[in-house]
Every structure is written in C-alpha cells, then in structure tokens.
Nucleic acid binder design. Structure first.
Lengths: 106, 106
DNA sequence: ACTCTATTTCGATGATTAGCTAATTATCGA
DNA sequence: TCGATAATTAGCTAATCATCGAAATAGAGT
C-alpha cells in the first residue's frame, strides 16, 4: 500500500504509467519520452515493479513493460472505499460507511 | 497532485486521515494514537496541510484538524478517471476512455 | 506577572531518494 | 568470436525525509 502510493508520488513514474495505459512499451521506448538518463529510468521501473504496478517481459535484448491495471485499480478502489469515496464497483453513493478496518492499514 | 500522493505514502499520515474521517480532532488527541513524538506528529500534520488534505482551526491553545474529504475525493477520483478506473460520479463501466490529458500531469 | 498546557519551530542525525557517469550483463548478427 | 545494442548494476553526490530532544510561542488560569 505504501509502496503503491510512493510509486505514484513521482511525476515521472505517473507519466510512465500513463504511457503504458495505451500499450506495452520497451524500457528504451519509454525512456525516449523523458529527459533523464536510462539508468534513472531503470530505477523508476524498478520502483514500479516493486509496487507491482508493472510487469516485465524480456524478449531477446529488450524488456517490455506492461501496466498491471488491476493492481492499480484494486489499490485505489480499496483505499477510496475505506474513505467512503470512489463509488466502488458495488455502487450507489450513500450506503452505510463500513467501520474502518483497524488492522491492515500499515 | 504529487503532494497528495506523497502525503498518502506514509502509513502514519494515512492513519491520521482515517482517524479524522470520523470526527475532527486536536493535534494532541491525534498524537495519542501514535508512538512518535509530538514534533514528529506536527511535521506530519504540516505535510497533510501542505497537500491541502486537512484544515487547521486554532481554538485557544489547541488546534483542531479536520479532514478535507472533498480534496482527497477530487484527487483520487481525478487520477482514477485518467486511467479509466474508479467509476467516477458519472458512472457506467465501459464508456469511451477519454484521451489522456497531456498537459496537467506534472 | 507567573506558570501551566498545547503546539510548533529549531537544529541535528540517520535513512532514503533521484540523479548522474562508468562499468557490467546479456543477446543478437555478421 | 567480435562488435553493436538494450538494459541493468555499481558507485557516487545532493537533496529530501522521518525522527528526536530542546527551545520558542501563545493562550488560560491563578
């Protein structure tokens, strides 16, 4: 949970996710969109991988990254629902607010 | 945007928001729920204030913090919608994905 | 004026982060 | 096998962050 938000806290990483929303792309292809060095981009990819937000597939010399939308979805929706906002998949606006889950919020 | 996610990236701050979801509380009252020093808590409050997620109201010697739910809501919903998830206020699941807003994502 | 109490600001410390260049690994094609 | 290409790891610096104890600020009550 912290890892997801930490990953999302950086504008470069958010833009990477945005780009991947359209289609999977290789590391190099993604890097072309940014004014930072390849190693720096590689580090960003590692953070996103660590947060399980992207998925890496090696094909020959290239590595293709793909957005794991469901993970992002679950994280955001789960958090939103804990706050009674976000209108999750089940619905309508003013249902009973579930008691805050004391345990799993670290 | 970055400030919101950065604020959300810390478990202590997320729990502060959770606590404030129920009722406004004073700085001291909030601090009692955590095993860190008052100055540290004060710093956390400052981050949340900076992200505009909470609102401070001084009454005498105490300061009461209140959750700005609409700001959290807007940030999360806005971001979610940029990814076609989150099913914002307008609704149904499979509407046309709006072209990603190139400008405002930094 | 003095003294509690509540909270923040100050100054320091250790950990983490984003960035770079240089070096390394791995794969492909000639 | 050699050289080129894609990407990572290694090693570094500068900046930011979470944390603390001590000091400063500010109101309330005596």
């Amino acid at each position: 949970m912290s890892k997801v938000f930490k990953a999302l806290a950086d504008p470069t990483r958010r833009r990477v996710l945005q780009l991947l929303r359209q289609r999977p792309m290789t590391a190099g292809e993604l890097s072309e969109h940014f004014a930072v060095s390849k190693p720096t981009m590689s580090a960003h990819f590692a953070v996103l991988r660590e947060a399980d937000l992207i998925d890496a597939a090696k094909q020959g010399t290239t590595i293709t990254y793909r957005l794991k939308l469901s993970v992002l979805e679950d994280a955001l929706l789960g958090f939103s629902q804990a706050f009674g906002i976000g209108l999750g998949p089940t619905g309508s606006a003013d249902e009973a607010v579930p008691e805050l889950s004391k345990g799993k919020m670290s």
